[in-house]
């Protein structure tokens, strides 16, 4: 219980910030200098994972450690869904946060990691309220939209954030009996449904992820109620990564100010190449529900 409070509290500190995917210590330093509030250390950014196919696993702990040594901001790293041993390894390594991520190839098709058994906090992806509450119930200290990683296409992240918001809104109209039904339908305890209804939001920090490629995308997700933004391939697959990174951070700060967003969005070079959702061979968001 105490650990839960410390870990959920840590996630609060990321709010109104941008967490960036980095693959080298040099990229980590660029991210930190641009204003990232944390970095996600991984061997390949999602767009390359998507292109390469093949099984994607936890990154080399040596590589993660080198990134941890190169920056002062928190460092996150990814494990495969359900792969509690990769999680044990990253916890032993001392990473600040673990992303149990659909971007990697799932290790277990029916179970996620029992996150309540760990000292280190976890963030998990969700497409809807049921997924979000199941992950929180398993011990996630933070939620993010799944979006569709590595596409540079914001449409799925928008769909997932709106779905979560609308489902939370819809809880308001339910009577006791309907809430019991809803909890059963979502396969979570009634208490967590009641808590969510009372709060009018998730009980943990909720970030946008999966398809953020421009400052406007980041501001859009903030306006839809995200507490902050993950940017994966969007930075280091753009033409000018330091500039794009800096602009996205500023857009998260000033998302309510279109005039400033216009200034921020000028002359950034080209954003990453986006992929149309309908043409994708692999839908990462369908993993680990």
């Amino acid at each position: 219980m105490e650990r839960e409070k410390i870990n959920k509290g840590f996630a609060e500190m990321f709010k109104n910030g941008v967490i960036m995917d980095v693959t080298t210590p040099e990229h980590a330093r660029i991210a930190q200098e641009a204003g990232a509030c944390a970095v996600m250390a991984l061997e390949r950014v999602p767009s390359d994972i998507r292109k390469d196919g093949m099984v994607a696993r936890m990154s080399d702990p040596g590589m993660i450690e080198a990134i941890m040594a190169s920056v002062s901001i928190p460092v996150m790293a990814k494990v495969r869904i359900g792969h509690f041993m990769e999680a044990r390894i990253l916890e032993a390594l001392g990473v600040d946060f673990i992303d149990e991520s659909e971007v990697l190839t799932p290790a277990d098709e029916s179970r996620h990691v029992d996150k309540s058994q760990f000292k280190v906090p976890f963030v998990c992806g969700a497409r809807n309220l049921g997924e979000a509450l199941r992950r929180i119930n398993e011990g996630a200290a933070m939620i993010r939209t799944k979006g569709e990683a590595g596409t540079g296409n914001i449409v799925e992240a928008v769909r997932h954030m709106r779905a979560i918001n609308e489902e939370i809104d819809a809880l308001k109209g339910l009577d006791e009996h309907q809430m019991i039904q809803k909890a059963a339908e979502m396969r979570v305890p009634l208490a967590i449904v009641k808590q969510t209804r009372e709060l009018g939001r998730l009980s943990v920090v909720n970030f946008a992820a999966g398809g953020v490629a421009t400052p406007a995308d980041a501001a859009l997700m903030m306006a839809l109620g995200s507490d902050g933004v993950f940017v994966g391939s969007g930075i280091f697959k753009s033409q000018n990564p330091p500039k794009m990174a800096h602009a996205i951070v500023q857009a998260v700060i000033h998302y309510q100010d279109p005039k400033r967003l216009a200034e921020i969005s000028k002359n950034l070079g080209s954003a990453m190449i986006g992929l149309e959702a309908k043409t994708l061979a692999v839908k990462m968001a369908e993993r680990g529900i």
């Binding site: 500190m13 910030g17 204003g35 901001i73 928190p74 700060i253």
Partner: peptide, 11 residues
């Protein structure tokens, strides 16, 4: 507030 000091001091 709490958060990342590097980010706040930068901006």
């Amino acid at each position: 507030p709490g958060g990342e000091s590097t980010v706040m001091s930068k901006f």
